[in-house]
Amino acid sequence: MKRYRSKKEQDQTILRTATNYLLPVLLLFSVFVLLRGHYLSGGGFVGGLIASIAFVLHSFAYSTKQTLSLFQFSPMALIPAGLALSILSGLLPVLLGLPFMTGVWFADSVAVIGSVGTALFFDIGVYLVVIGVVLTILFTIAENV
């Protein structure tokens, strides 16, 4: 049994080493996709999916438990956080006296990110929800089936 495990570890050396580099790159890429969404192809949904794939890759190389230990909290917590962010970004215009979910923008654009507005925060909310949902579903199934 012990030999088998060590062999398995040996088998995964390449994958593990690659994952160690790929995970941050993929996460960065997912944020890039999320941010560029407003002008070019991309967006919160795809970004979230890519980020999830990054974590799934990590769980393949190591184990679900180890991937979960990357998080300070359960990925499920991302769901309410994301939903709250989306809803708050929709509520912000209400405070300014505009209808729910009107797009509101800062006058000046920020370096790298570009112009910042409620739509961006909404998209970040979607991004977080998607990561939360995909990881919750996948890891729950992986652990319990």
């Binding site: 969404g37 407003h38 989306s86 809803i87 979910m101 739509a119 909404f122």
Partner: peptide, 22 residues
Amino acid sequence: KGKNVVNVILVDFRGFDTLIET
């Protein structure tokens, strides 16, 4: 203020749908 029409529809024009979908 978006050039990607698909994404603008998702997060702005029909943002409410997206919210419900999430």
